[in-house]
Nucleic acid binder design. Structure first.
Lengths: 253, 253
DNA sequence: CAGGTGCGTTGCATTCAATGCAATGCTCAT
DNA sequence: ATGAGCATTGCATTGAATGCAACGCACCTG
């Protein structure tokens, strides 16, 4: 809607790929260098970009700090955290909490496995939306129309042979997840990693977040991991109860 | 420099305080509501803000994801991480890595204490710049003029009775830290928490990051914590060596 | 050391996009 | 029903964003 702001914001994802100099930024934006310079300067004043000693621009510290504040304001995270820790103490595996927001599912909390073999993931990172167990739960709860539209819009990268291949398969999987009230990812993202996940619901029954337990094959088999399902669901339900109980219902994401 | 972008970016810290509706945003920016609406819409298209079901605006998911990418691009973090983990395994306490960037010092990595009593901190959070041990190291390395100017510009909140009270005291402390090559924070931020920190240097000898070990009084006394200093310094030196060795020297922050 | 190339930066006239206004539409509470 | 309070829209005006061309600067090169 606002051309200038639009251009300025387009610089950020561009810099996320790596540092760039003025010329590169101007080229990628399709504007004159002087225009790009002014935009970068404004971003700089706000700490959103940083100028390295080699004159190139990077994403800045304020951006990181802002994102931090954004996450700390999520009530669901506050409420869920102790439950995640307790679950981790009980099973020892990596525990994740994720939310959905406009085409993205991202981890907002994580408790690390106590086993030496850990899976790679980071708070704030968007998850593999077509295969992750938490993503399935969050998307399965969307209104039918939105779910269909989204499924069509997504890419379906074949991380492994068991990745969800296309919109039809994905919608079928979501339907199944929706009915059973829990989800799994058995090697759909990383060949040797399995997850079980359960939904956290608000007072109105809508899914506001999803949590999962993940472990590599070398530690437990998929069957063993599935025996944790009741525990995961109980934990998710406990969070749901606390969340719907004491808060005026705000939007989840 | 660019008024429109400037206004748009000013919305973000405002929303970081908590959700706000259109009227509030317009008021705080001092612009007409229609103007604020257009700015918010543009921010929305880029995923920087999210519209809750109650119509109010929040910071958005893309912001968090961007910040994540920003941190993953920091080479120093990649290199340091395994060293931080090893140090944590050796001493059991919380280990932090921090960098300085234009008036802010922020944690870019952290390994949690293995003791049940943990200190509160989060990756991406700006640190208490006038008292934190890592901040002292990073600022002590700035050129004299910049250091003085910065010291004057800062606030000196008295978190505890041992917090740094004013610019003069701060500059004196920085001078000391600069000479001895390491720093401490003994209850300057939280009455019962102590830290020891050491600098990570680039090939040119400039301080590019700082790392610290923190522990509450109830676990170890300040004297006991100080016995870890040689270990902390060795770790920092190891990171320095690896950092200056294998990378073309980029800007630290 | 002269000359040249490749950057970032600046001042300025033009133009087009951002602005505020006023009117409209919505939702909710009384 | 009625109106208050909010978001939203179309439009005329104006002022800010734009691209150009000139400049400065550092770094090579012959």
């Amino acid at each position: 809607m606002s051309q200038t702001v639009d251009r300025a914001l387009s610089i950020l994802p561009l810099l996320a790929e790596g540092p760039a100099d003025l010329g590169q930024v101007a080229d990628r934006l399709g504007v004159h260098k002087s225009t790009a310079l002014r935009l970068l300067r404004t971003l700089h004043e706000h700490g959103m970009v940083y100028r390295q000693s080699d004159q190139r621009y990077r994403l800045g510290a304020r951006l990181i700090a802002l994102a931090q504040e954004a996450m700390e304001n999520l009530d669901i995270r506050e409420i869920a955290h102790p439950h995640l820790v307790r679950l981790n103490e009980q099973c020892g595996h990596t525990v994740h909490l994720a939310v959905y927001e406009e085409d993205e599912v991202l981890y907002i909390d994580k408790v690390e496995s106590r086993y030496p073999v850990r899976m790679y993931s980071r708070i704030g990172k968007p998850v593999a939306i077509t295969v992750a167990a938490v993503a399935k739960l969050l998307l399965a709860d969307l209104p039918e129309a939105e779910r269909r539209a989204l499924a069509d819009r997504l890419d379906y990268p074949m991380y492994t042979s068991r990745s969800t291949p296309n919109p039809a398969a994905f919608l079928r999987e979501l339907e199944k997840v929706r009915e059973q009230g829990w989800a799994t990812d058995l090697g759909g993202h990383e060949e040797s990693i399995n997850c079980v996940a359960a939904p956290v619901r608000g007072a109105d029954g809508r899914v506001v977040a999803a949590m999962s337990v993940s472990a590599p094959n070398v530690v437990v088999t998929a069957e063993e991991l599935l025996t944790l399902l009741p525990l995961v669901r109980r934990t998710a339900d406990a969070i749901s109860g606390e969340y719907s109980g004491r808060n005026t219902v705000k939007d989840p994401a």
